[in-house]
Design a protein around this nucleic acid. Structure first.
Lengths: 331, 331
DNA sequence: TTGTAGGCGTTATCAG
DNA sequence: CTGATAACGCCTACAA
């Protein structure tokens, strides 16, 4: 069917037209009669001619490709939060006719150099960086100083460019305030990865008295981490009666362990997660959590990025997506 | 820092060497003295020189890029099964020094043509297709006849190329046989998308007597679909006492609805899902399911693909990943 | 409306 | 070991 790859020169010779005409038949630029264009397209389909994408990119300097760099921490469990962002970004990009190239950041040593190679060699017309790893800053800064449209999802310390951020700090504050309001006495915080701000927000919401009694667990990023966090916490402070987990995955693992120990949720321990991943609502007990609206974030990030790529000069601001405290059964 | 993009000509002139030497300093091919190589690399870092990726691809005909095409059905809920595959493939590719370009298949009309453009214009060195949509066949066939290494994840009717498949039919059979063995009387099947084979396997496992009493629900692909499937099923056959759901997401939604109606799981209704997504184990009741080992599948697919890309001539066979019935609390 | 020819930035070939 | 130069395949002024 598609025997041999044919180039524009051979193809145009076969049709008896010039390469320029062939080019015009596909690019949509330059004048060409409808008849010859249709003829050329028809024969192209027939002969399997396709413009070589590299040659095209070389001359036009366009790639129609967006790069996304995201933290990929856990080897053994997928990160549902990242997954939801990734899927929504991929889809939003596709709808805009852009392809998405994915780059997990695993923090190995050779990575930064490779990332710079990709970015600076002109692979991408636009770049999305999901904050949460050391390399994130480097990527965003490099893209920025190279003049490549780029947007950061999540907060990055001291970053200047465009970003879409969730108010995690505010969300965490809501969680703390809620525990205080319902009269819980011994709060705990189970940490995620790079979540200082969340912890601070939670402390603020708790108020000074409760905050003084806060127990903090190292947590992690997987269901299993949440599961073991429960045991550690009970060892550290058996009186704990409410806990805020830095993400839903941790919260689910935590609750599972608690229920295995016959603790009642939320009577004995109230649990609030963070992210509102889709499964949170269907978990039993349904998970109270801070809704971050990942899908919306992915879509907004792409939409802002496309705007920058089109050269629409909006100030590279910070699009803040507000968080809600969603109270379900676990707290 | 990265003021202006500099090309090899300017750069080599600046250093007083030829472009060929510069090229050799980075490509690793051709002879070059260690001293000049180091010098060139150092000055490149200093001046911000980077080989243009399109020009390089144009001459070498290499892209170091793999494409993945996957079904993206639901707009409002992420597909966790796909997500787990996507994350594992992305990571495995990255570890092999290949970038992954993602293409969700949403079944809109213009898509097939775009996909062919990408594939035939030389975007990819290798292609992964996740079966489950109409366009899957087209993609795999096109790649195959264009001589591009490609592998299919999941079963595709009448496909000839390399593939990694899960034994879903066998897994479904195990589920049916289990229900029969424990003496359930009124089986039901909640369908996913394109899951005829699963249904058949389940029927085989059930055996003729039970199969005659099977109720089938249309199901779907989201938590919400599973949730409504419960209500429909109870309306269609209130006596149902065991159900096999085509995927875990459906099963979780289903169980949620059942529990809301105060049905006991598994006493009143036993539920088995399919996929063994990570959250299944942490759900309450923990979900009995058919383990498909997505991560392993993603890794195996990439590893097989890389082998083909290196030209190692293994017969383009079918790598069958076996399924297990994982019994937890829901059945 | 169409054709001609130069240029995009690398790598590969072939001398030196 | 290094340098000059011809591809690589396409796009796009410019000319016809």
């Amino acid at each position: 069917m598609v025997g041999k790859i044919i180039n524009i020169k051979e193809f145009s010779k076969l049709l008896g037209v010039s390469t320029a005409t062939v080019s015009r038949a596909f690019s949509g630029r330059g004048r060409i009669s409808g008849k010859t264009r249709d003829m050329i397209r028809a024969r192209a389909a027939e002969l399997g001619y396709r413009a070589n994408i590299h040659a095209r990119s070389l001359t036009t300097r366009r790639t129609d490709r967006i790069g996304i760099f995201y933290p990929s921490i856990s080897m053994d469990e997928p990160d549902y939060f990242i997954a939801e962002i990734l899927l929504s970004v991929s889809r939003a990009a596709a709808e805009a006719g852009k392809a998405l190239q994915t780059h997990p950041i695993t923090e190995n040593d050779k990575e930064p150099e490779m990332f710079l190679d990709y970015i600076l060699s002109g692979s991408f017309e636009g770049i999305v960086t999901v904050a949460g790893s050391k390399a994130s800053n480097l990527i965003a800064e490099t893209a920025g100083s190279a003049g490549i449209p780029n947007i950061v999802i999540g907060r990055m310390p001291g970053a200047g460019g465009a970003s879409v951020v969730f108010q995690t700090e505010e969300g965490a504050r809501l969680a703390g305030a809620y525990f205080k309001r319902v009269g819980r006495k011994n709060p705990a915080y189970v940490r995620g990865v790079l979540d200082r701000r969340k912890q601070q927000g939670f402390i603020d919401g708790l108020g000074p008295e409760l905050a003084a009694r806060l127990t903090v667990d190292a947590g992690g990023s997987s269901f299993a981490d949440g599961h073991t966090a429960y045991r550690r916490l009970m060892a550290a402070n058996p009186a704990s009666d409410c806990v805020f987990c830095a993400n839903d995955v941790l919260a689910i693992g935590f609750i599972k362990a608690a229920m295995e120990s016959s603790r009642r949720i939320p009577e004995d321990i109230a649990v609030i997660g963070c992210d509102d991943i889709k499964v949170a609502r269907y978990f039993t007990p349904s998970l109270s959590t801070i809704a971050l609206h990942e899908r919306e974030i992915g879509e907004r990030a792409v939409s802002a990025l496309l705007k920058m790529m089109r050269g629409e000069t909006s100030p590279p601001g910070c699009d803040i997506v507000s968080c809600d405290l969603v109270l379900r059964a676990s707290a």
